[in-house]
Amino acid sequence: MLIITRISRVLSNFQNLVALFAGACIIVSLIGILSLPLAFEENQLYPKTRLDPTSGLYPYDRGGVPFGTTEVICQYPENSPYAGYVTTYLTPLSLFLAENTLYIGTTIVAHPGGIIDEILYNTRGADTVVETSILFTAFAIASYLYRREEE
């Protein structure tokens, strides 16, 4: 049997699909490991130097004054003039919690005015929309298949 026929026999069986893809991932990852170390670019959206484990807002505390402004590095500052303001967007209740307890960092996404959501909406708008769309699509498939079981 020709070597080509053998290869195509392996490729044409979709049971081998995951193995093939995993193999490709391993090869590319090996190339990646060989090309280490990669330089890290410090100049990003949030300054990484100000992380303060003692802050009530840890790990979301990126500096800045609540109800004031803070510096956020934007790709297109002219398109998002208010980007800096939202890093410190906290409701008065959240501000109180942040100043008096250590727990606001763990609940921050789950309550109204959570910092992360606000930052995302304001600086990287389409991300949040598409992320929820992915979840919604996945739920739609699951619920359709579940309801079809009942028919």
Binding site: I4, T5, I7, S8, R9, L11, S12
Partner: peptide, 12 residues
Amino acid sequence: LSPFDSVTVQGI
């Protein structure tokens, strides 16, 4: 070529 062989050859 047979269908899968054709693709394999082009893959090579």
